[in-house]
Design a protein around this nucleic acid. Sequence first.
DNA 1: CCGGCGCGCAGGTCTAGACCACTGCCCTTG
DNA 2: CAAGGGCAGTGGTCTAGACCTGCGCGCCGG
Lengths: 255, 255
Amino acid sequence: MAGEIDRHNGTPIYVQLREILRAHIAQMCPPGSALPSERDLAERFGLARMTVRQAIDALVGEEVIERVVGLGTFVRKPKLDLQVKLTSYSEEMQRRGMVPAARVLSFEQINASAFLARELQLEEGTPLVRFRRLLLADNEPMSVDENFIPAHRVPGLLDREPPTSLYNVLSESYGLVMEWGEDMIEATAASPSTARLLNVDVGSPLLKIQRHAFVARAMVDYSVSYYRADRYKLWVPLQRPGVRPTRNYSTGYRP
Amino acid sequence: MAGEIDRHNGTPIYVQLREILRAHIAQMCPPGSALPSERDLAERFGLARMTVRQAIDALVGEEVIERVVGLGTFVRKPKLDLQVKLTSYSEEMQRRGMVPAARVLSFEQINASAFLARELQLEEGTPLVRFRRLLLADNEPMSVDENFIPAHRVPGLLDREPPTSLYNVLSESYGLVMEWGEDMIEATAASPSTARLLNVDVGSPLLKIQRHAFVARAMVDYSVSYYRADRYKLWVPLQRPGVRPTRNYSTGYRP
DNA sequence: CCGGCGCGCAGGTCTAGACCACTGCCCTTG
DNA sequence: CAAGGGCAGTGGTCTAGACCTGCGCGCCGG
């Protein structure tokens, strides 16, 4: 198991352990495999068992792992059908037989402004990773995309190359599989800078999509995207309240 | 606070305390009121503070109460359900606390064009009821709305006054309760005629929403709406949070 | 050979403290 | 009167134990 506890960096120990466990699970634990026992973990990291339990409690709450009395703690099967909906741009385009590409506009750490802090439900000034890209499909601009992720969720992300698929990296390296979210959709007119990036006229209609994506109760990603209206439509299945959900949602490209 | 802890009946103490607190909140705590402090509760019930915290943790997980560092623990406002979809315009606006109104632009029978026939999955030339309105919210134009309904579904509809709430009439007079549907969402620029109706500049961004609504397997309504982008945003849940995460521990499952 | 019991280990619950950061408020000081 | 510091109280975190029940397996006796 990689990682060590740093007792002096201010991050609560149980949070550190939780993330160590999450990464460990994501990287080398198939569903059904057992975690070390609470007492083992306590000894290995030099912690009280109650502290270990606090870390494990969190992951159980997220339904990442599962306790069984008398047996141990086990990795749960990821919910496959959930994974399809909150898809990343690259997955989405590949599924549609288009060649996705991206030009990285910025990839840096910033401090949360008042606005971003509110959107991400964090304190103002919290370090965030900002990842801004121009997304292309078949070599033609499709959207300008800006993601904000709490930095503490993705230690070391900025030391890497900017990922080609953000959601893939989040899931494979950090165990952050987006489970649910909400989109705020509106129409807007292209600003000069956005128009230039997307290769459209200033004032052209764009689809603005703000997304909050969550893992368990914690928001992990806030993103703002501007899609070219002439290249992108959304398809949204609806249902009447009280009817059993179909649980489908997909973004769709229409030529 | 009513109730006492029974240390010998087998029910975990924190569960007993949790239910005592829940009852206490339900009976005499308006939203915003404070609970006794953790130390108070521990002393009053003769428990360790960690045990009290476990009870409180559960209620915080249920979003019944809320902790504020340095201040105390407070009763939350019950959450409103935002999960309203496939609602009619009037329901939607009422939910937002606005006064809905409509100006009828046309209310007539037409024959399905090739395009409409394809959208409604009917034969070309099939009689349709066309209902076109300018929808207002708080007396200001919000959208231009056009519904197409197979005429055989709504006999006698045209002999009435144009309905104020289309979905209400469909459901109350014809038993057509929309069960599911799909929205196609895109951004577009206001045409001269639409711009004039909506009281915006030509070329202003609009949200174009095409909706297919179904009862059972049969499509009952095809509609096209143009919403003013400056007045309308769409909220789309991507994936339900599912079960409220709790700190309860399940037993009896074998991986 | 087979059945049952007990041991070891898993998580579940609980205790009685500790120190920390944060908040609101009072009281002192300028 | 205003600004600031101190203080008491809050939740946040952590410790090092305790004893409980549930579980599987191996040992031992029939």
